[in-house]
Structure formats: C-alpha cells, structure tokens
Amino acid sequence: MNRIPTMAELAAEGRQPEVLFWVGCAGSFDDRAQRVTRAFAELLQNAGVDFAILGQEESCTGDPARRAGNEFLFQMLAQQNVAVLNMYGVKKIVTACPHCFNTLKNEYPVLGGNYEVVHHTQFLLQLLKEGRLKVEGGSFRGKKITYHDSCYLGRVNGEYEAPRALLEALDADLVEMKRCRTKGLCCGAGGAQMWKEDEPGDKRINVERAEEALETGAAVVASNCPFCLTMISDGVKAKDKQDEVLVYDLAELILNSK
C-alpha cells in the first residue's frame, strides 16, 4: 500500500478526490482492523480509484456515544465531523465500518451532512462490475466460506447481497449459518457493548455466534465489520479453533485471492 493523501493535502493542491475513505476508530487504532484498512486501501489503489482520507481531522462518528445514551457527546463529534466534511465539499464517502456507514448515512443528514455513503463491500462490488478490480479467485476456489451478516449492514440497512456477490466472485463455496440474513445473530459488540463487560448470563454472544460458524464446517468466516471481526475471532479462539478456522474481512479475502 502506498501512502494515502489526506483531504487537506489535496485541497492545498486545489484537488478534490472522487471519494473519501472514512477509516473509523477501529480501522485507525485496532491492530487487526488496521490490516483491513490497508487491504482495502491497496485494493482501491490497484483499481486506480482517486481517493483520500481525512487523517487526523477525522473523529469518531459518535455511534457508540449515541447508542450508550450520551447525546451530548454524539452531537459534539457529529457536528464537528459535518463541519469538516462540508468544508472539504465531500460528496461521496466509502467506509469499511458498518457503524460509521450507518451514522454517516442515516444520522448526519438531519445535522446538515448530506453525502452519498457506501459500504466498502458495495464499493468493491461496483469496482468489480466496472472491471476496475480483478478477482482471480485462485486461492479460495471451492473453499468452504461462511458469511456473518453484521447487524448494521444487514438488518439495519438492508444490504445482504453485495458481500455475498463478492464471495461468489471468489468462486468460494458459500455455506450459510443457521441464522443468516434478516435473522443473522449479532456478534455482541453493537450498542457500545464493545466497551463494557457483559451483563450476567450463560454465555458470551460472540461464543454463541462462533459456535454457529464452526458448525458449518467452513474454513473461513467472512466478515464486513471491524467489531464483528474482533468478536468472532475471540469466539473462535474461545473454542480453541483459531488454527483451523480463520476470520477475515471481505477486503482481505479479495486482496489475498491471487
């Protein structure tokens, strides 16, 4: 991956990119999610997409604050982001995080932030259809892969097909879990759960989901969300299956298909 220019740098040259890549907190700071960020950026560069990031001018979208109930914090973060985005005249945003995707798409318009927002799986599919992105599919041909619907891409925003279409392009053998699409089970991280201990119960949600993924006998679990990625990986580890079953983001699968 080559270094990605920031919006500020491009603006200084009087340029505006085709699309802004919104990285998000997980994609910026979490080691595992950073790998997804780089993989996706590399795919964009390979496809010759003209894009930039906000760099240090990006803030959290405010999703966890809002869903925890802290509206003040949400408004502070969101209004600051809207101001920055509008200052650069951003029209189109792509992000690899379904929570960022949802907040940017559904919650910013009321605050004066109107953008075309796409999730990275949708964007990759688009590039594929336009022939800008090539998927050789070599390493995953016929391999059993199961796909975990994230809540905020699937149930909340109704996108079930784009990620599956990418798996199809990989020529992988997609095996569905018992609970999928509208009934897909949450990984347990949403609603700011990521930042707190579970309430008392019988089991962790991510372990329940990992068990379901393991039941399919798939060698790879495909995910579209940095939080799901962490949760399911931890669940698979809790079952001591981390050496047999690998958890990847779709962008990584496509990059590694050659």
Partner: peptide, 22 residues
C-alpha cells in the same frame, strides 16, 4: 469511552496519531 471520545475524539485513548497506519 466517554472520556476518550471527549478528549481525543476517538473511541480508544491512544498515544499514536489516528493515521499512524498510513
């Protein structure tokens, strides 16, 4: 979480900058 969002505008308080990966 709230503190880090308020002070560093990110969900985790980190010493490295947001674009260290880049």
């Amino acid at each position: 979480l709230f503190n880090s969002l308020e002070n560093s505008q990110s969900a985790w308080a980190m010493s490295s900058p947001r674009d260290a990966w880049n």
